[in-house]
Write a protein that binds this DNA or RNA. Structure first.
Lengths: 235, 235
DNA sequence: CGATGCGTTGATAACTTTCAAATTTAGTGG
DNA sequence: CCACTAAATTTGAAAGTTATCAACGCATCG
């Protein structure tokens, strides 16, 4: 009942992989399982460029569009009452954002590097979905993957500073083409706001991981030297 | 396009309320929006009793069943490598759990009070879903509500101990029949494992909130005396 | 070459955990 | 219903972790 072979069923259960997918597979799962979805997205979407630092959409705006990163990098975030910024996700090329569970965006989105996005009007997607179950399946798969990501983040945030940073590095590594060499598109401040830490703590933690010889650190680039030790430090 | 009036569309977007629903509305949203779903659940489900402390299902077991709490209380959790327990959610009467995004449960579930659950075989639900769009809509609504909950928890866990406890109280209050008087079905240890704190910190934080005259505290019962102050402390 | 933004480093303060009781609560058998 | 026991919660003191504040270094860019 819950096997991939049943993927044409109308139920959400059948859309889910048997094993939780590693994050790196978001793009590929969608490619393999939802070719029709991707085709619609490519046809009905248009490319928009966002210079670094520009807001792509704001919290509480009507959620009219779905976005797929083509190049660069994007984050979604929320500003809390006291002015702190909580980043809820980073999105790299091939990944989707703007998939909100209500009629209005729950978060704001901003380009953290100069970025290009494929922008798809949700109403167009929905029209396509009525005639093509693969499209609605694609949307559901994205939603389920997002849920899995967020659940992982809950586990991450319950831990110590070192475990958070390690978890972040492993997550980024899983999404990188090369699993060992990470180009970090975001600033230290972005990492801090993602992990609920300060930039100083992020900086010091990276340094201590370097001292332990599990990673090499430069400003925008991390090399994982000892992955098994890193995984052990993940708790 | 994204209005509630469009709820019969095949797209997940149309299933979502315009505004994020407060948590208390999980049960009622399902009642109102998914009468057919609830009917199927009631018909095809059976009642099982679980004494307090009993495991209902375990992480990595095949996710064959969906559960709806009838009485008592349940939590889902994960044991981390170092033995810590991270509780991922509490479920009160009327709420669903066991809705996993993969073919196997991501978490374990346990009765934190003597509990009765309606147990529904997912394969039966899926069969019903093929003939009745309302059923698959119901599943999707549950999934989307779960996503919203988890997103709120991410925001919670990035904050200070006091803000976490306050957020927890506000969340529980929103789910209680009376919004001001909370019966807590869980132990302090459960609250601590939910918030990523120690029981001592939870205890001290509750005491300090009592000192601030925003709540009254007894072992299993909280009364919110000053809701607006409490909300302000939520960050 | 100064200005600016970003990252690192150091010292101190604030917060949270840890460890070790003491106290209260809940359950059980008399 | 009371006494006893085990479990749960609270409290206190000390240790550990992270944040805050301040300064410095290091690039990039006009």
């Amino acid at each position: 009942m819950l096997t991939p072979s049943n993927a044409s069923s109308n139920s959400i259960f059948s859309l889910m992989p048997r094993q939780p997918l590693p994050i790196r597979d978001q793009a590929s799962a969608c490619r393999e399982g939802c070719a029709a979805f991707d085709r619609i997205v490519s046809i009905s979407g248009f490319i928009v460029s966002y210079p670094r630092g520009v807001e792509i959409f704001g919290e509480n705006e009507p959620a009219e569009y779905l976005y797929k990163v083509v190049s660069g990098a994007v984050c979604t975030y929320k500003i809390l009452n006291d002015g702190r910024r909580q980043i809820s996700g980073f999105y790299l090329p091939g990944e989707f954002f703007g998939l909100q569970y209500s009629g209005e965006y729950e978060f704001s989105a901003e380009a953290i590097r100069d970025a290009k996005s494929l922008v798809i009007k949700k109403s167009a997607l929905m029209a396509a979905a009525r005639g093509d179950a693969a499209v609605s399946h694609g949307l559901l798969l994205l939603t389920a993957l997002e849920l899995g990501r967020v659940q992982n983040r809950v586990l991450l945030l319950a831990k110590s500073a070192q475990e958070r940073v390690v978890g972040f590095l492993l997550e980024m590594a899983a999404r990188s083409p090369s699993g060992r060499s990470l180009q970090l598109p975001m600033l230290r401040q972005d990492i801090a706001d993602y992990l609920g830490l300060t930039i100083e703590t992020v900086s010091r933690t990276l340094k201590s991981l370097k001292k332990l010889a599990v990673i090499d650190v430069s400003t925008r680039h991390i090399v994982i030297r000892d992955r098994s030790s890193l995984s052990q430090l993940n708790g």
